[in-house]
Design a protein around this nucleic acid. Sequence first.
DNA 1: TCGCAAAAATGACCAATGGTCAGGTTTTAT
DNA 2: ATAAAACCTGACCATTGGTCATTTTTGCGA
Lengths: 219, 219
Amino acid sequence: MGTIQRKERERDQRRKAILASARAAFVKHGIATTTMERIAQEAELAKGTLYLYFRSREELLMGLLADDLAALTASMTTVAESPLAPPEKLASAFRTFYTYSQENQFFYQVMTQTNIGLLLQPNCETSIIADFISVNERLISLVEGIVSEGVAAGYFFLHGPIRTVVAEIIIAMKGSVMILRNNLIPPGWVTEPEQVILHDIVQLIIRGLGRSPSPTQAN
Amino acid sequence: MGTIQRKERERDQRRKAILASARAAFVKHGIATTTMERIAQEAELAKGTLYLYFRSREELLMGLLADDLAALTASMTTVAESPLAPPEKLASAFRTFYTYSQENQFFYQVMTQTNIGLLLQPNCETSIIADFISVNERLISLVEGIVSEGVAAGYFFLHGPIRTVVAEIIIAMKGSVMILRNNLIPPGWVTEPEQVILHDIVQLIIRGLGRSPSPTQAN
DNA sequence: TCGCAAAAATGACCAATGGTCAGGTTTTAT
DNA sequence: ATAAAACCTGACCATTGGTCATTTTTGCGA
């Protein structure tokens, strides 16, 4: 019986070692230009061996992304549990998201160089997709908690079901980060640093949340 | 002298014919899975001939995108010149952007399946990049006109230089469209149609613009 | 009209890369 | 010790963007 456990443990260790090598290679060379051959070399294995552990290059990428999303969720949880007022907590949550992408090179590259939708392919293992969805749900719940708190304390107003409002906030903020990090800003278009732009957008949304959706008048 | 003009005209016609064939192929088969061989077949030319007119696959894509952005700018110009109040005009502008992407299949696919930043590569012809930047500038100016009008009429408040504020609005809205169209919404996350989500986000931003950035109090 | 040079087009070829799989090596169980 | 199972290897395969030697077409001058 001990043999099975050891073998499972060793198999898991090799899988993790391959992921670590892939991460190092992706960070060093960029996602698009890192080949499976190069990852295999970094892992000191044959290329064919990689396919014993991952069904495709996409599945390898998703494995790395799942780890990052888990770490990000932990950071966001800390924010959600802090004693800040809801508007400041919301701003802090999205600052955390941005900072994480800035400090974690692989995550940054996935955000900027990969169409994540294309990674969610039928040849990805189902449990990896489920992990991705699960971690996303936890992020949503965290932001929902902050918004709910803000509504209860009178800082925010809802213009629809809270779930929908939260989704919209996240869409806008994630989208902004993607634009900022996708080189979709024509040169010379803005002179302020990305953090300032992102902060302003968060504040714009927070101000919008802080205003009842009923008024149709100026001022 | 007549021969040179005719040859230039014919060369331009062939270039346009290749672009049309590429568009048809991309729409029919998707961007990622359309090969240059398939485009060549659609154009009834040899594959090598494509490279007499475009330096790379990316340059071909950029050529198509430039046409789309020009058409989109025309639509947005119509909105900017309409007699609507600035908040409604702003909402209409972004609705136009979304509707265009919905109705124009190639544009939709570029938005969802392509990392545009990767298209802006050194092997793209400089004038194509310049066109891309130029069209972007026109879009920015249109939105800037609307915001400026709203400020003058007392609908909107600026939290920074108008150029920056406009950039932030565009970043948030473009980003939202990208998220919505990139299948980055986990299944079952939202039940409302994309248009409703986008409309809500625009309204949230408009409400934020309609509130002076000074208040720090709830209600 | 003909001959030649230039321009345009062709399609076989090349290099690169994700993925496959027959064969080799190592581990396990009896 | 032996056979079977598990693991690993690296040559091979299919695909595709891009190249380039060759072929075809066009334009021009005699």
